[in-house]
Design a protein around this nucleic acid. Structure first.
Lengths: 154, 154
DNA sequence: ATGGGTGCAAAGGTTTTGCACTCCG
DNA sequence: CGGAGTGCAAAACCTTTGCACCCAT
């Protein structure tokens, strides 16, 4: 357990200036929100938390920052099909990197679970296609145990 | 190569009536669109093709059908982050089942590739969680070779 | 100083919903 | 027949954009 588990302020500084983007108080603030809270946050969620901390950051800025930070690989964007994009801190730690999602087609519930699996596949892809992989997302769609129970006793 | 490669009309009939839904001409027509064309189609794409075939099906009906058919596992819903949900016929054939996507964070290009991998993992999940898996989606995010070349010679 | 970044409000695009009417079972 | 399904148009939502102003570099 070392200190480089999640991308943090230092990484953002580096990646932003590396590409000629500026380090603004808004971007720092938004990153901090992700460090303090966690989970899968939508733009609106982040905006809400910012307003709680009486920040004056506009919603459009939140959208622009989430977009940029996920393009830089600091955040990861995910879609659970609930109508809005959700983001979470990217991580360099394989233990955390490899958590996947089960999504119930009936009740839309999202269940997380961990499983190690995709490292060699990623390396293989990078070789074959010249694609540089920053993150992956694995989703399984089906029916959760509750919905299955409910539909069998109808 | 047998006949049960993709879900078809018979499967839809069965799954619909099994759950008390009706088999309507609209639903049949929409399924047919997927059988004749393929690929990743948005609601609007399907609607466009229907109008081409001078169908009188409304866009809302298309949305409702896509939702229902993917809930039944006949279609698969996917999100490439381009602002609209896309659907494709689900398949029982593992060769087709296992195609994944590389998504470039810079230019948003989607590259498909095939790789066999997740069967045992699916079985494992079903055991541990009671989750019945109908389909999965694997996406890798990163930078495609063109974007990498472009950013290195700036 | 200067070009990128921000805030606001308006626009844009996708998806959902209310309601009267239709038609499958 | 009766209730699920449909079509239409309006509404709801999430996200993007235009523009004037601000501020990291």
């Amino acid at each position: 357990m070392e200190n480089h588990q999640l991308y943090g302020l230092a990484d953002m500084r580096e990646k932003l200036s590396e590409r000629g983007y500026k380090i603004t108080p808004q971007r720092k603030e938004i990153l901090r929100i992700f460090e303090e809270h966690g989970g899968h946050m939508s733009a609106e969620d982040v905006y809400g938390l910012l307003r709680g901390n009486d920040s004056e950051i506009g919603l459009a800025t939140v959208y622009r920052a989430l977009d940029l930070l996920s393009e830089l690989g600091i955040l990861v964007r995910m879609d659970f099909g609930d109508g809005c994009a959700r983001y979470e801190l990217n991580t360099a730690d394989p233990k955390v990197h490899h958590h996947h999602h089960l999504i119930c087609l009936k009740c839309k519930k999202v269940i997380e679970f961990e499983e190690d699996l995709l490292d060699e596949l990623e390396a293989d892809i990078a070789n074959k296609s010249g694609f540089e992989i920053v993150n992956h997302e694995v989703k399984f769609f089906g029916y959760c145990s509750e919905c299955r129970a409910r539909s069998s006793d109808e």
